[in-house]
Structures are given as structure tokens and as C-alpha cells.
Design a protein around this nucleic acid. Structure first.
Length: 292
DNA sequence: GACGCGTGGAA
DNA sequence: TTTCCAAGCGT
């Protein structure tokens, strides 16, 4: 097995997209915010929101000083609004536990709200230049195909980190590039549907291609139907409150047209339980308590 | 390990 | 049109 590092590094030098968080000196806070936004939201939708966010809140302390509801409003339609709440909590934790500086240590990053195996290592590697395996869904797919010979990866697993670690050069700077290049390859060449193998630097050594693109059992979770779901209902409720913010909205005026009143009430209750919505008297609003 | 969690663009 | 997919995380 020749290894993936050398061809990935050469390819990345020419093919990498020019993205804001790859600019020199983008900063650890910017990297952290970008990674939160990129958790399940496509790059093209993140870019404009990221710039607006960092203009409003240039440091973790700036965000921590605002009400969490403002973060939910600024999050707008990026989806999964819990991430806005988690990012706000992380900012408070950074202010209180790390003197306002995004931590560099992976375990310290993992201890922050909303940061898991991927985001912690992404910040340590891309913002601070340390040497760790960074494994997202793109990298898992590249590894599954190039090394495992399978069409798609299985569910995320700690073993993925070990597989990526085995591909990293000893040189710290090169290791960071290999991490970024594997993700980039999965994002723009080794895509889930219709991979562009003719443009792939790993084509000659790709186990999946060499084996003739065998179909493998797809163990990925199917996404639940969105139309008519509780998630859709929650989204509609929160959209109403974002558009009214910072004003509160009478409960009777929150998606009154919704066909299933019980589902609407269930959505409101779950949003309150998640801390995304506050209820007082007969009104609902985004959470407004200062963070401390 | 499996589930719940938004939103919009592309095939 | 419907389905699939997108730099995951907490429970």
C-alpha cells in the first residue's frame, strides 16, 4: 500500500478551493465558528453567514456577552438551530474557563459544548497547526473507498481515527495538509453520488476502483421523512419567533394555521425543553437571559 | 449504537 | 416529483 499522503498533497496544492477559513491568519475563533456552521450544512450556505457572524461577534467574549436568543436569530436559516445555542455556550465556557482564548488542547476542546471528535481535532489542526487525525464524513468515504474497497463508509467509528492516523506523515505541516486534502477530495471529487474518478489523484491505487466499483451493503442511516415531521414543525415555530425577535409572540399567534394542533404544541414544548424557546405568561420568545 | 435534530439545492 | 445529500453532536 503506497499511502495516500503524497498524491493528496500534490493534488490539494492545485485543486483546493479558496475558502474563507483557509485564509492566512483567519484565527481560531473564526475556525471554530466555521466548524460549528459546517456541521451538516453545505459550504456554499455557510460562507455569507460566517462573515456576518464574525463581524458582529469578533471574539468569544463578544458572543458570550449577548443573549443566546441573539445567536439563534443570527443563525437564521442555517438549520439545526441547537448549534447556535451550543456555540453560544461554548463561547461562555471559553470566556470563563480559558480567559476568552479558544483552547488548543484536544481534550479541552472536547469539553466544550457542541464540540465532538471531529470539531475538536479540526480546530487543533487547522487553527493551531497541531498533528492529529481529522475525520469527517468526506474523509471516511475516501478511506472506505481507497483503502477499504467499499462504495460507502459505515457509521462513524473510533477506528476511523486510527485509519487516518496511519496515513499522516510525521511532518506536522504535511499532516495538516493531508487532513485537509482528504476532506476536500471527498467534498469535490470522491463524492457520495457520481464520484469523478477521472480527476482523482488516488485512482490508480483506489481499492474500490481496482476491484471494479463493487456495490457494498449500505449501512448508512436513512434520513427520516421531513414533510409532516416534528422537525418541520419546530422549524416553523422557530422561524416565527426569529422573525418577531426580540419581541415575544402570543402563543395563539404561533403557526395558528398548522393542521395538527397537538403536533404544534409538542413542538413548542420540545423547543422549550431544549432551551431554544422561553415561555412567559401566554407568550413565547427566544432565550434572552444574559450569559454568565 | 441508534435516534432526533433544519434547511435548501441538485439529480 | 421525490429522494438524496450536506465539514456532527448530545443523549
Amino acid at each position: 500500500m503506497p499511502g495516500l499522503a503524497a498524491p493528496l498533497i500534490a493534488w490539494y496544492r492545485d485543486a483546493a478551493r479558496d475558502l474563507p477559513w483557509r485564509r492566512e491568519g483567519f484565527g481560531a475563533w473564526g475556525t471554530l465558528v466555521s466548524e460549528f456552521m459546517l456541521q451538516q450544512t453545505p459550504v456554499n450556505r455557510v460562507v455569507p453567514h460566517l462573515e456576518a457572524w464574525l463581524t458582529r461577534w469578533p471574539t468569544p467574549a463578544d458572543l458570550a456577552a449577548s443573549p443566546p436568543g441573539d445567536a439563534v436569530t443570527q443563525w437564521a436559516n442555517l438549520g439545526y438551530p441547537r448549534r447556535a445555542l451550543w456555540l453560544h455556550r461554548a463561547a461562555v465556557e471559553i470566556r470563563d474557563r480559558h480567559d476568552g482564548v479558544v483552547p488548543r488542547d484536544v481534550d479541552a476542546l472536547l469539553a466544550l459544548t457542541g464540540i465532538g471528535d471531529y470539531t475538536a481535532r479540526a480546530v487543533a489542526v487547522f487553527a493551531y497547526g497541531d498533528r492529529h487525525p481529522v475525520v469527517d464524513t468526506n474523509t471516511r468515504r475516501v478511506l472506505a473507498r481507497a483503502i477499504g474497497g467499499r462504495a460507502q463508509p459505515g457509521p462513524p467509528h473510533r477506528r476511523d481515527l486510527e485509519a487516518m492516523e496511519a496515513e499522516l506523515p510525521a511532518d506536522i505541516a504535511e499532516a495538516a495538509i493531508v487532513n485537509a486534502a482528504a476532506m476536500e477530495l471527498g467534498a469535490i471529487v470522491c463524492t457520495a453520488r457520481a464520484p469523478k474518478c477521472e480527476a482523482c489523484p488516488l485512482a490508480a491505487q483506489c481499492a474500490w476502483r481496482v476491484a471494479g466499483y463493487p456495490a457494498s451493503e449500505d449501512r448508512r442511516r436513512k434520513q427520516a421523512t421531513y414533510e409532516g415531521s416534528d422537525r418541520q414543525t419546530r422549524g416553523a415555530v422557530l422561524k416565527t419567533l426569529r422573525e418577531a425577535a426580540p419581541a415575544a409572540v402570543p402563543v395563539f399567534a404561533v403557526i395558528p394555521e398548522w393542521p395538527d394542533a397537538a403536533q404544534r404544541d409538542r413542538a413548542i414544548d420540545s423547543l422549550i425543553a431544549d432551551g431554544l424557546v422561553e415561555a412567559d405568561d401566554d407568550h413565547l420568545r427566544l432565550p434572552g437571559h444574559p450569559s454568565s
